[in-house]
């Protein structure tokens, strides 16, 4: 089972890579938009997380995701238990 901390670290690394600058996450509740990440960049991050953790998230579940915590939850729920 992958720990939530590991997911958060991976999120931060991927976000930094996509944004091409160091991204810091004050709290899990931080809005993704507040990190300077637009909707398409968010999709890139999701895609990279899907590849990294070998999960697949349906498009419709990406609608309504606004915070880091929500995105990490989404990936976590898809991981094999």
């Amino acid at each position: 089972m992958i720990a939530r901390d590991e997911l958060l670290v991976k999120f931060r690394h991927i976000a930094s890579e996509v944004a091409e600058r160091e991204v810091t996450i004050p709290t899990e509740g931080t809005a993704i938009a507040d990190l300077g990440i637009d909707s398409l960049a968010m999709l890139e991050i999701v895609g990279a997380m899907e590849r990294e953790f070998k999960v697949q998230i349906p498009d419709d579940q990406l609608v309504g995701i606004t915070t880091v915590a929500q995105l990490v939850d989404l990936v976590q729920r898809r991981l094999p238990s």
């Binding site: 996509v18 999709l43 890139e44 999701v46 895609g47 990279a48 899907e50 590849r51 498009d59």
Partner: peptide, 10 residues
């Protein structure tokens, strides 16, 4: 696929 575009951007 969304993943194809992600690959291209990477």
């Amino acid at each position: 696929e969304r993943a194809e575009l992600v690959r291209v951007l990477a």
